[in-house]
Design a protein around this nucleic acid. Structure first.
Length: 881
RNA sequence: GGGCCUUUAGCUCAGCGGUUUAGAGCGCUCGCCUCACACGCGAGAGGUCGUAGGUUCAAAUCCUACAAGGCCCACCA
């Protein structure tokens, strides 16, 4: 219904005309292969909460949905799928394979967004984008060419992280380091003289990777290491290959580690690569793309790297060159995708120069253009950007944006790699395109603006209307695991290509963990499926519970039973409606047939109290959401609905058994409940929408999802205080009843003597003359005979009379005059101290200028309240005197 | 090796630029199928705020050190 009515549509015109302010969230696009997990559910709950809240407040609100083509992940899924049907990717070739991927995408690619709709995500689905659709693809090509022209993309032979399983390069961020049990071998390298003869001396080298020995080009020692100074400049014989390599001195060598000497293998190790550059050493690469050894490895050629390792150790031992084998925990790099052990490998790849992009991105966060919530994540962000490395963007995959680089073909059919042309379209006949595709993040980093039409331009040459109206976005909601992959890069791309940061706020949610604090994962089987939970408890329950748990920045330990709380709350909301709703005239579809009319002004004490509480709650929720305190907002709503509306308002105002409410109070209840539904709707859209239609007959299209946030209502502080006093008296009497085991149905008599402090402290409540207050007390505390004496005596008591026994019980805490004076004096003292501190804060210029306005206003209010309370307390004390 | 986070009730956690009696949910105890709701109602028990110092009229909150647990980054072969 919502979607059919276009409730979630955002219209650029309303922003461009100045009619409305925009509020925009770009949804982090999930992988097309993905299935909704709890992390999505959490982030979507937060996003939808913010989106519905702003929509209700009159913002032109746009939540842009979409999916990511997810290069490696998708290629693997489809490849596996095909293999199960006996089809090999390489056998069918690139074009046929891509056709399979596209048809796979057509069939299954929409699943995750469907799942998000079940959660009630209020996206404008007309804006749905896919990172490989035409528009985004053009943006990607354009970006690559532009960066190349600006000198920010280059091709080079560098050591890359090679995944032999997927046979592609990975960025550093895609590589995890895990500890594995391995060995540290000490190997003897025979020292040779100038004539190439063994001197009989050995240089001992420690290594965890003996399979790379055939690629050694030197042995390095520390220049200050007296043990080896005589060897520097000499040569050693590389075991198993008998090549002669020099001994070099380099101060990165740690003298106290292993044997104090390092075998230098620039083709297969990062530090060695650096050492090699410093000493002008050649680079030997002995690995094939699939992880087997090549012909340079001599006898080991063709063996898999792990087999070769064992074989070489065995051979070294046989040659008498293996001195020692120790158990050793090896820090092993593995692919975060495939789990394969990563090999550092020399290979030609395309790189983006990151330093020039990083500098403006750092500045944008330093000067507050982009703000992180919680703030501490900016430190992580700076740490990464300060030390950012160039980004290898080419991937040896078929599924992705093909690199817009073209090579001329020579007469013999080979390509001239040196004469490449960088261009979106083919330069013409005789050119072939680079085989590689771009890293999947190379499209996602353009997401906030490429989804709005960038780099297309309007007729007048300016940005497209959607771009003009909805860029930059308001907030980005994500978890910290893609801070570097995505968030930082989006900020860089936004600033570089559009001149503006792509969003103002970044809200980083915690990660959802299992009950024991472990990451939820398929392999461990500890995941809780949000859709199962939605089936079991309802989507609203899932949403509300997640909002409740979404405290700023903390990871969330989730237990499936937690959703019961959300379910119970939804149920409470529903049942509360019945208290008055069952008195409405309805048709067969349970929809009201007559309108009870506009909500009348509050009359009774309870009505004036509840309206006041509503206003306070609305303000509190607004403040909490402005600060991204989701759990606090949810808690505030919960307390108001359950604690105030249900436990008190409905209990004191509902009709007695067998009676019906009068028309006026029914109209009041309907009006109040409408506001309650407006308030709860962003958290629980489904139940509230359903109930919305049960309150009044409404014209089609008058959906709650399109309705306004509760309008400010008049507040009645004195009545609110009076009602609070009634609550206090009721609670006191209930305690007495519980203490003396008075049966619940038994009516008792109560005699109250009001004490002066109530009056003097500004709460001028004369229960004795308020028949309303007395009625509430009778009803809520099970009292039939109630007598009240106002003022005069400071001894207050309630007398409970039941059966044959009379008991006189003092109302606790209200009798001892001296204690009362002391308490008052202490309270005045504390209040004065408090007032001093608030005034101090307010006179602090940095605080006043830097804190949000709402916070300063709250502080001023606190000061005013405190001053008033001090005056009241002093009056009371004087009165007691 | 650097950096960050956490430590508050039996459990999971709030507690925000220090100030009233440190809160919630779940669990627990007692009493209730009271005509919206037992997915509920009423009343309760339960806390040396990790430890030790310091600043302050005042500290769970700010500072220092320590302890325990977790996370991120980094080229000890």
């Amino acid at each position: 219904y919502w979607e059919a009515a276009g409730v979630f549509h955002a219209d650029p015109e309303r922003v461009l005309s100045g009619e409305r302010q925009p509020f925009v969230i770009p949804m982090p696009p999930p992988n097309v292969t993905g299935r909704l997990h709890m992390g999505h559910a959490l982030q979507d709950t937060v996003q939808d909460l913010l989106v519905r809240f702003h929509r209700a407040r009159g913002f032109e609100t746009l939540w842009i949905p979409g999916t990511d083509h997810a290069g490696i992940a998708t290629q693997n899924v489809v490849e596996r799928d095909l293999r199960a049907r006996g089809i090999e990717r390489k056998a069918i070739g690139r074009d046929a394979f891509l056709e399979h991927v596209w048809s796979w995408k057509a069939e299954y690619g929409g699943a995750i967004l469907e799942q998000k709709r079940r959660l009630g995500d209020s996206c404008d689905w007309r804006f749905e984008r896919f990172t490989m659709d035409d528009g985004l693809s053009r943006a990607v090509q354009h970006t690559f060419v532009t960066l190349y022209e600006q000198g920010l993309i280059y091709r080079g032979d560098y050591l890359v992280n090679w995944d032999p399983d997927n046979q592609t390069v990975l960025s550093n961020e895609e590589v995890d380091t895990v500890e594995r049990n391995g060995s540290l071998w000490t190997v003897r390298y025979p020292v040779v003289d100038a004539a190439g003869q063994d001197t009989g001396e050995f240089l001992r080298v420690a290594t965890t990777r003996p399979e790379t020995i055939p690629a050694d080009v030197a042995v390095a020692v520390h220049p200050d290491d007296a043990r080896f100074t005589h060897l520097v400049g000499q040569s050693v014989r590389v075991p198993t290959t008998d090549r002669l390599v020099p001994v070099v001195a380099d101060d990165v060598i740690k003298m106290d580690f292993g044997a104090g000497a390092l075998k230098v293998t620039p083709g297969h190790s990062e530090i060695d690569f650096e050492i090699g550059k410093r000493h002008n050493l050649p680079v030997l690469s002995i690995l094939n793309a699939d992880g087997s050894l090549n012909e340079l490895a001599g006898a080991y050629a063709g063996l898999d790297r792990f087999v070769a390792k064992k074989q070489i150790v065995k051979d070294l031992d046989a040659l008498g060159l293996l001195e020692r084998t120790e158990d050793y925990v090896v820090q092993t790099p593995v692919s975060s995708r495939s789990g394969a052990v990563i090999e550092p490998l020399i290979s030609p790849q395309w790189y983006v120069s990151m330093k020039p992009l990083a500098e403006p991105a750092i500045a944008a966060v330093k000067d507050g253009t982009v703000r992180f919530h919680p703030e501490r994540w900016q430190n992580e962000y700076f740490r990464w950007l300060d030390d950012v490395r160039d980004w290898p963007v080419s991937r040896q995959l078929w599924w992705g944006h093909r690199i817009p680089v073209w090579y001329p073909t020579r007469a013999d059919g080979t390509r001239d790699e040196a004469a490449f042309v960088v261009s979106v379209d083919s330069p013409g006949q005789g050119f072939v395109q680079d085989d590689d595709t771009l890293d999947t993040w190379f499209s996602s980093w353009l997401w906030p603006f490429a989804t709005l039409g960038w780099p297309e331009t309007a007729q007048d040459g300016g940005p497209m209307p959607a771009m003009k109206a909805f860029y930059p976005a308001s907030v980005l909601v994500s978890a910290h695991d893609i801070l570097f992959f995505w968030i930082a890069r989006m900020i860089m791309a936004g600033l570089h290509f559009t001149g503006e940061a792509p969003f103002r706020d970044v809200f980083i949610t915690g990660m959802v963990k299992d009950k024991q604090g472990r990451k939820m994962s398929k392999s461990v089987g500890n995941g809780i499926d949000p859709l199962d939970m939605a089936d079991q408890y309802g989507a609203d329950a899932v949403r509300f519970t997640l909002a409740t748990l979404c405290a700023q920045g903390q990871d969330i330990k989730l237990d499936a039973s937690g959703f019961e709380g959300g379910r119970n709350f939804a149920n409470k909301l529903w049942n509360a409606f019945n208290v008055f709703g069952r008195f409405l005239d309805t048709d067969d579809a349970a929809h009201p047939t007559t309108d009870v009319g506009p909500s009348p002004a509050p009359e009774s004490l309870a009505e004036r109290w509840v309206v006041t509480r509503l206003s306070e709650t609305v303000t509190a929720v607004e403040e909490a959401l402005a600060k991204y305190r989701m759990s606090e907002a949810a808690q505030t709503v919960y307390d108001f609905v359950w604690g105030d509306v249900c436990d008190w308002f409905l209990e004191v105002s509902k009709p007695a058994p067998g009676e019906a409410p009068d028309a006026r109070s029914l109209a009041f209840s309907v009006g109040l409940y409408e506001d309650v539904l407006r308030l709860v709707h962003p958290f629980m859209p489904f139940v509230t929408e359903e109930l919305w239609w049960k309150l009044r007959p409404r014209p089609a299209g008058d959906a709650l999802a399109a309705a306004a946030w509760p309008a400010p209502r008049e507040t009645f502080p004195e009545d609110a205080a009076a009602f609070a006093l009634v609550q206090g008296v009721v609670t006191e009497i209930r305690q007495i009843r519980a203490k003396y085991n008075v049966p619940p149905g038994k009516k008792i008599s109560a005699h109250l003597t009001a004490i002066t402090t109530w009056e003097a402290s500004g709460l001028a409540v004369d229960i004795g003359s308020s028949s309303e207050a007395q009625a509430y007390i009778r009803r809520m505390a099970g009292v039939d005979e109630l007598t009240v004496m106002a003022g005069g005596s400071f001894a207050a008591s309630a007398t409970a009379v039941f059966g044959q026994i009379d008991i006189v019980v003092p109302l606790e805490g209200m009798i001892d005059l001296d204690a009362e004076r002391a308490r008052l004096a202490k309270e005045i003292d504390a209040k004065r101290g408090f007032l001093r501190s608030v005034e101090g804060k307010l006179s602090n210029e940095t605080f006043v200028s830097r804190a949000p306005e709402a916070v300063v206003a709250t502080e001023r209010q606190k000061a005013a309240d405190a001053a008033a309370q001090i005056a009241a307390l002093e009056a009371t004390l004087a009165d007691l005197g």
